[in-house]
Amino acid sequence: MARNLSMNEAVNEALDQEMARDPTVICMGEDISGGTGSPGEDDAWGGPLGVTKGLSVKHGDRIMDTPLSESAFIGAAIGAACSGLRPVAELMFVDFMGVCFDEIFNQAAKFRYMFGGKAETPVVIRCMAGAGFRAAAQHSQMLTPIFTHIPGLKVVFPSNAYDAKGLLIQSIRDNDPVIFFEHKNLYDTKADVPEGLYTIPFAEANVVREGDDATIVTYGQTVQRSLDAAGALAKEGIECEVIDLRTLSPIDMDTVLESVENTGRLVCVDEANPRCSIAADVSATVTQEIFGALKAGVRMVTAPHTPVPFSPALEDLYIPGADRIAAAVRQTVAN
């Protein structure tokens, strides 16, 4: 049966069920069990936003609280993956990933290639990303482009609870390192989620709305904002196709190209900073592959090239909103 679960609950259930199914799956991270050193409160916390709450009770020492030392425990998780486990490491905020780039970029991402395919690194690194949570510039970044840039890493970004469960189980079963993004603003959003285990394949974009006039390509929290824009535009007679990429590496360009071949117009929406972003990448690929199909210049709607502001008013303006997305679509259609 499908139940209406929040993304928070869906992630928790995916970890719980896959750990029950596969004894090689372990979880490690800061405070994921919670209250380390506080007797009687072992399950007090469950991660900074409570996503792993309850798992330590069920799975005991397979839920490991780590010291506040990202480079050490991410390295440990990668090493464990090389020697037969399927670790899911939680790195809290993606903003902290900088201190363990060597383990991720130079080690995990390279093993399969440099050992001639003989080594596999089935590690998942979960992390929170994105703005809108009033958490300021060091806890709000959308660093998806940095990881998408590295060959050997897979990059996953669910926009809803159903996708989160299926993509996380797929990520755990995948034999390569996966960076699994969770948007802080989406944890409370709900969707129908099946009780049982299921997987959503990588590189399978989701066409969340069909339309013939313009294609909006996005991922994460801007999927709903794009749908809101498409709803408003439909009242003006402009029908948008909205594509949720779901995975950024590998990326499903076939679905994007097929859609733009039909609509002739493309708006790429990305919460990341604009330079070298997913939006820029998709724009460039479409322009290179099917320039002749385009009826108007490609438009990008992104965050500005600044840190995320702490002022709530500015932060709200920073994230691409439905109005900006709709305005960009109107511009392409006017051409």
Binding site: Y162, P194, G196, L197, Y198, T199, I200, V207, R209, E210
Partner: peptide, 15 residues
């Protein structure tokens, strides 16, 4: 339509 296809895919993705 999209929903019909999605519904079948949701079923087929189950373990």
């Amino acid at each position: 339509n999209r929903s019909l296809v999605d519904g079948v895919l949701r079923y087929k993705r189950l373990d």
